[in-house]
Design a protein around this nucleic acid. Structure first.
Length: 156
DNA sequence: GCCAACGTTGGC
DNA sequence: GCCAACGTTGGC
């Protein structure tokens, strides 16, 4: 078992927020329809990896808490359900194209670390979510960066 | 609600 | 395999 990795995963709180994850305890992360994001989940995520839970399209956008991967990637059934919003005819039970992981709730930050706060931190310049027009919904994060954000979230 | 950027699709 | 059109993302 290699060392755990660190990630940032985006969700619009109107569809699924950190409070929803707290209530549910854990959730299957379905609906990812971007190949790069899928590849991260399928090829690199392992049980125990830690995730910055990011609220996008929110007021304010920012990191709301922490989750942990509790089950590795498996085929995403929402891709072969024609009634599902994320339905993709390319995917089938026989040949699944899309995958999801299972996340469990770890922590809701006492302080939501907003996008401007992330931007203002001199040591977080390399954080991918700060790059302009970075839309990837699953992003790798350096351990050092993860720990800085974690600390910021626990302040006040 | 706007809009810039980017990924995907599909005609050729 | 090019590239224009289209849809989506996500900050503002």
């Amino acid at each position: 078992m290699s060392a755990i990795r660190y990630w940032l995963m985006k969700s619009e709180p109107e569809s699924y927020s950190i409070d929803d994850l707290k209530r549910d305890g854990k959730t299957y992360w379905d609906g990812v329809r971007n190949y790069q994001a899928r590849n991260f989940m399928r090829d690199q995520m392992q049980v125990g990896d830690r995730v910055l839970f990011y609220h996008s399209n929110a007021e304010p956008p920012g990191v709301a808490g922490i989750a942990e991967v509790c089950k590795k990637a498996s085929p995403d059934p929402s891709a072969w359900d024609p009634k599902d919003h994320h339905y993709d005819p390319k995917s089938s039970r026989e040949n699944p194209v899309w995958v999801g992981v299972e996340l469990k709730f770890v922590e809701k930050f006492s302080h939501l670390v907003s996008l401007p706060e992330l931007r203002d931190h001199p040591k977080l310049r390399a954080l991918l979510v700060l790059k302009p027009f970075q839309r990837l919904s699953v992003q790798p994060v350096d351990k050092a960066h993860f720990e800085i954000v974690e600390k910021m979230g626990r302040e006040t």
